[in-house]
């Protein structure tokens, strides 16, 4: 479980299928050195979490780290 700015990424569950990277409407996610990294600018649309087939990425709730 690796926290990013707005998402929590689970490196054990993740299989690097890159659905979250491609589904993101503002392209803040990317795969760098085999890890999912996040840039600034997340609009909290939850698309990555909804489309992830491996339950490997979660958008943090507003109260958590916002």
């Amino acid at each position: 479980m690796k926290p990013r700015i707005n998402v929590i990424w689970n490196e054990i569950y993740c299989k690097r299928c890159l659905i979250c990277v491609e589904v993101c409407p503002v392209q803040v996610l990317s795969l760098e050195r085999n890890e999912i990294e996040e840039k600034d600018g997340c609009i909290r649309c939850y698309q990555c979490e909804r489309y992830c087939p491996d339950i490997a990425i979660e958008v943090m709730d507003e109260k958590g780290r916002g």
Binding site: I12, P53, A56
Partner: peptide
């Protein structure tokens, strides 16, 4: 409802079955 201790599941990366299960 999911057996998370068995995760990650054995399907290929990007397989749609994971989405169906979820």
């Amino acid at each position: 409802l999911l057996k998370l201790r068995r995760f990650p599941h054995t399907w290929c990366p990007g397989c749609g079955i994971g989405a169906v299960l979820k």
